[in-house]
Write a protein that binds this DNA or RNA. Structure first.
Length: 351
DNA sequence: AACTGAGCCAACCGCCGAGAC
DNA sequence: AGTCTCGGCGGTTGGCTCAGT
């Protein structure tokens, strides 16, 4: 049989740690070092689970931890690393001395994600929302041509990050400027459209939210979504759908295939060793995120990414969407509506 | 002063791979 | 070979703080 349980979970203390408990752990670690955490509570005289002791030590008591707030350099580093590896906080934290995965995760969730959204950047894909919508239009089969929605961008004035932080932003800003002029969109319309687009992102961008809450198995998709291939569209005009962008290839491609761009990015991030680490885990993640269109439930989140992948493959192969999955049902219904109301194809909806 | 909602973060939960038994 | 725990990880949550009303 296996090992005996580390502790009686019903009788251990939970919740916030007291200074006395902290002192006991510190004293124990300084005398004995870090070893078997399951023995720490008993030896240190604590009524806590060993796992809880380890967390307390790694997230708060470790002497090498920084207590001060994140610097702008760290902020930029986190954004770049998140773009490269997704929400693999432990990998990101390893590149930031003195920071824990919990620190980075909290900082991202409370500050950086909101900051990016405010800038008009999708925090999951690190692409402008307009780009995400354009891509989303490609997935569902809609043509975005003529839709002023996809030309919208937030005012650059609201940005608080260095312009170099977000790849392609200057290009987007220029394209945005051109598209606004081309389409004679007045400023107030522009801002109103962005408000609409923000609401749409929150409501209709469900699959990204799903992938963002996906744990290890979603990280693969996240990385794919932020791969350099996805930035090729930034060089196109905003009013034109990304004809070169192919989601089926995008989702099926190995995100770690070496390209010049990627090598440059790896160099920029000093992430060569990180890429190796990712490749080690990628095999597992690829198996988990199978492309058979099976939505998997884990920690309350559905893995829509895998479902989309499966559906896209079907579409690209020219087969009907009668498979019966959730996405199949949506697309079937979509087709019905579009067939019944063809005039809707050219309409811009104000939700 | 009391209430409320948002922001923040420490800690917990649940999953996974590795390895002990 | 099968069962179980450990250690690590990412996602989530409970509770504290603080600004606004």
């Amino acid at each position: 049989m296996g090992r005996p349980p580390c502790c009686d979970k019903s009788n251990v203390k939970r919740g916030l740690w007291t200074a006395e408990e902290d002192a006991k752990i510190l004293a124990f670690v300084s005398n004995h070092g870090i070893g078997n955490w399951t023995l720490v509570p008993k030896k240190a005289g604590l009524n806590r689970c060993g796992k809880s002791c380890r967390l307390r030590w790694t997230n708060y008591l470790r002497p090498d931890l920084k207590q001060d707030s994140f610097t702008p350099q760290e902020e930029e580093h986190i954004i770049n690393l998140h773009e490269a590896v997704g929400s693999r906080w432990s990998l990101i934290a390893k590149k930031l001395p003195g920071r824990t995965d919990n620190d980075v995760k909290n900082f991202w969730n409370t500050k950086l994600r909101k900051k990016l959204v405010k800038m008009g950047i999708d925090p999951v894909t690190h692409k402008p929302f307009s780009q995400v919508l354009s891509d989303y239009g490609n997935i569902s089969g809609f043509s975005n041509t003529g839709s002023s929605l996809i030309t919208t961008q937030p005012s650059p004035a609201c940005t608080g990050l260095p312009s170099t932080t977000i790849k392609g932003m200057p290009i987007i800003e220029k394209a945005q400027e051109n598209s606004i002029l081309d389409n004679n969109i007045h400023t107030w319309e522009y801002q109103a459209h962005f408000q609409v687009i923000n609401q749409e992102i929150v409501q209709a961008h469900f699959f990204n939210e799903a992938t963002s809450s996906c744990s290890s198995s979603s990280s693969n998709n996240l990385t794919q979504l932020s791969s350099p291939q996805s930035y090729s569209c930034l060089y196109q005009t905003q009013t034109t759908p990304c004809s070169s962008f192919n989601w089926s290839e995008f989702l099926l491609n190995d995100p770690f295939i070496s390209t010049e761009l990627q090598q440059q990015e790896e160099h920029d991030l000093q992430g060569v060793s990180m890429q190796n680490e990712i490749q080690m885990t990628n095999k597992t993640n690829a198996n988990e995120c199978n492309m058979n269109g099976v939505a998997r439930k884990d920690s309350g989140a559905l893995y829509y990414g895998a479902s989309f992948g499966g559906q896209i493959n079907k579409q690209s192969e020219g087969t009907s969407s009668s498979g019966g999955s959730f996405v199949d049902a949506i697309l079937d219904r979509d087709s019905e509506i579009r067939a019944a109301f063809p005039e809707l194809l050219d309409e811009v909806f104000d939700y």
